[in-house]
Deep mutational scan, measured.
Amino acid sequence: AEIMKKTDFDKVASEYTKIGTISTTGEMSPLDAREDLIKKADEKGADVVVLTSGQTENKIHGTADIYKKK
């Protein structure tokens, strides 16, 4: 799966169907969080990951919607 910015995804959204939401939390780098989200998306058969939230304090927390091409 590839990560797309919401603004970029909005241009092609009609080509995809939302298949779920994924999240990651833990003591990790932003890059590790990104890789974890991609891994989870791949496991669910998603083609595209669109980040919906991200937070960093002591731990990273990120959520994303996942989509499959129609």
Rank of each mutant, 00 (worst) to 15 (best):
A1E: 00
A1R: 01
E2Q: 15
E2W: 10
E2H: 14
E2R: 15
E2T: 15
I3Y: 06
I3P: 02
I3Q: 01
I3A: 03
I3W: 10
I3K: 01
I3R: 00
K5S: 15
K6H: 07
T7M: 10
T7W: 09
T7G: 10
D8F: 04
D8S: 04
D8K: 04
D8T: 04
F9Q: 01
F9P: 01
F9A: 01
F9T: 00
F9N: 01
F9S: 01
F9C: 03
D10P: 02
D10S: 06
K11N: 08
K11T: 06
K11F: 06
V12W: 04
V12K: 04
V12D: 03
A13D: 03
A13K: 12
A13F: 07
A13V: 06
A13L: 04
A13I: 06
A13R: 13
S14E: 10
S14K: 10
S14Y: 11
S14M: 09
S14H: 15
E15Y: 14
E15D: 12
E15I: 06
Y16V: 02
Y16R: 00
Y16W: 01
Y16I: 04
T17K: 08
T17A: 07
T17H: 12
K18A: 06
K18H: 15
I19M: 07
I19N: 01
I19R: 00
G20H: 00
G20C: 07
G20Q: 01
G20D: 04
G20W: 02
G20M: 03
T21V: 09
T21F: 07
T21K: 05
I22H: 01
I22Q: 01
I22M: 03
I22A: 01
I22G: 00
S23F: 13
S23Y: 13
S23E: 12
S23T: 11
S23I: 09
S23R: 09
T24M: 08
T24C: 13
T24F: 11
T24I: 12
T25Q: 11
T25R: 09
T25N: 13
T25A: 14
T25P: 10
G26F: 12
G26Q: 11
G26K: 11
G26Y: 10
G26M: 12
G26A: 10
G26L: 12
E27I: 12
E27K: 10
E27V: 12
E27Y: 13
E27W: 14
M28G: 06
M28S: 06
M28R: 07
M28T: 08
S29D: 10
S29N: 09
L31E: 15
L31H: 13
L31M: 11
L31W: 13
L31K: 14
D32G: 07
D32P: 04
D32K: 12
A33K: 06
A33S: 06
A33H: 09
A33P: 05
A33M: 12
A33N: 05
A33T: 07
R34T: 08
R34N: 07
R34Q: 09
R34M: 15
R34E: 09
R34V: 12
E35W: 09
E35G: 06
E35A: 14
D36K: 05
D36S: 09
D36F: 13
D36M: 10
D36P: 02
L37Q: 00
L37P: 00
L37A: 04
I38V: 08
I38R: 08
I38E: 03
K39F: 05
K39E: 04
K39T: 04
K39I: 04
K39W: 06
K39M: 07
K39G: 04
K40S: 05
K40L: 09
K40W: 05
K40V: 06
A41Y: 00
A41K: 00
A41V: 00
D42S: 15
D42G: 13
D42R: 14
E43I: 08
E43N: 06
E43W: 05
E43F: 07
E43G: 05
E43H: 08
K44T: 04
K44H: 12
K44C: 15
K44E: 07
G45N: 07
G45T: 04
G45D: 05
A46E: 03
A46Y: 01
A46D: 00
D47T: 07
D47R: 02
D47H: 10
D47Y: 04
D47G: 04
V48T: 02
V48N: 02
V48Y: 03
V48I: 11
V49K: 00
V49Y: 03
V49I: 14
V49Q: 00
V49F: 03
V50H: 03
V50K: 00
V50C: 02
V50I: 06
V50G: 01
V50Q: 01
L51W: 10
L51C: 11
L51G: 02
L51D: 03
L51V: 08
T52M: 07
T52H: 12
T52L: 10
S53C: 14
S53D: 12
S53W: 14
S53L: 14
S53K: 08
G54C: 15
Q55K: 10
Q55H: 13
Q55D: 14
Q55P: 11
T56I: 09
E57Q: 10
E57K: 05
E57M: 13
E57D: 11
N58T: 10
K59H: 12
K59W: 15
K59Y: 13
K59L: 11
K59F: 15
I60H: 10
I60P: 11
I60F: 12
H61F: 13
H61D: 08
H61G: 11
G62T: 15
G62P: 10
G62Y: 15
G62W: 15
G62V: 15
T63R: 06
T63Q: 11
A64I: 04
A64G: 04
A64T: 02
D65M: 05
D65C: 09
D65A: 04
I66M: 05
I66H: 00
I66P: 01
Y67L: 01
K68D: 02
K68V: 10
K68R: 11
K68C: 06
K69A: 05
K69T: 03
K69V: 05
K69F: 04
K69W: 05
K69E: 03
K69N: 04
K70M: 07
K70V: 09
